[in-house]
Design a protein around this nucleic acid. Structure first.
Lengths: 173, 173
DNA sequence: TTTAATAGTTAATTGGCGTTAACTATAAGC
DNA sequence: GCTTATAGTTAACGCCAATTAACTATTAAA
């Protein structure tokens, strides 16, 4: 088996394991916070795209526009999302996360990551550095892909970043 | 920053990137195949645990046993899952994937993984081997956690492995 | 300016997935 | 052997998120 094939196999197995662990805790977290899959998807979409509109959410989640509208409406009522008229084209509604929505997204991510802390305890300490470098290498590689795939679109992708609690606290909205 | 902190940071960043790439295509795939989150969860659970029982699925997905029973029943009717009496304890029903279920799991996984092939092209070849070993190390660590969490049961964890199309073809049932 | 297209909302309806309650069947304990 | 516990199923029901249809409002096109 070539090095590439071996890498492929190891990565796939790892991702499988990761999925199993993170999905589970993420689902639990969704239940605890009374969030549906669609709601989370919509929050992520709004978080990820600038000037996100209602129809976009429908397209992204694969649901009809009325469904998206109702979905957004619920999120607005929950004070997670802000919906305001676009002044250029008053048919559009611009969507953005409010503080509560941003906090939720972040907490959801933390929920997914819970098992990682446990994982670290089981990795021999002398291997940690090599593995870290491996991740960095893959991160670099994926950045190259991102740059390549977004060059011909004028829509800016907001690369999602974990905010510290302090940053969240200072964040007006 | 300690080695552990650095590892943590790199892993988190990597996971963010991975999530962004894989979640969307996976959701799309679920829609195309008329699968609900619970159904996928159940299939994964059955795939993962040997001698998987109905109640286990309920516990894992956070739903009641009757709900799990109905869920399994649907999957049986769809010919994705096999449900047979345990001869040691005839109250139990042993669950296992049928060919169709295994194929679905594999295809769903491929849907998530499409971008990985592209990723590999951007990783320097001389780093591949080290990264592969890193993954193997993490896989081992997670297996230890799995063993610990199922310590009072003698159930073996089936490490999920990608079957080739040939293997799937030859696979009876 | 009349018509058509686009963006979104509202309303009525549906269907899947969940719940509880009641039941069967098997196994374990006293 | 009688009782209790466990595993799962069936039935009746509820809820929520989706659908379609019909509508308003704004913009673009003829």
């Amino acid at each position: 088996m070539s090095k590439i094939e071996q890498f492929h196999l190891a990565l796939k197995e790892w991702i499988q394991i990761f999925m199993r662990h993170s999905m589970h805790s993420f689902t639990e977290w969704m239940g605890e916070n009374d969030l549906s899959r669609s709601q989370v998807g919509a929050l992520m979409m709004i978080n990820h795209r600038k000037n996100c509109q209602v129809t976009m959410i429908g397209e992204d989640l694969g649901i009809s526009t009325p469904a998206a509208s109702q979905l957004v409406d619920r999120l607005v009522q929950l004070d997670m999302v802000e919906r305001r008229e676009d002044k250029e084209d008053r048919r559009n509604k611009k969507l953005a996360l409010r503080k509560k929505g941003r906090q939720l997204i972040q907490e959801g991510f933390k929920a997914r990551m819970g098992w990682v802390d446990e994982l670290i305890e089981y990795i021999p300490e002398n291997e940690l550095e090599d593995i870290t470098n491996g991740f960095r290498s893959m991160i670099k590689a994926s950045e190259k892909i991102d740059k390549k795939s977004t060059k011909n679109s004028d829509e800016k992708i907001v690369v999602w970043k974990i905010q510290t609690d302090q940053e969240l606290e200072n964040d007006e909205s």
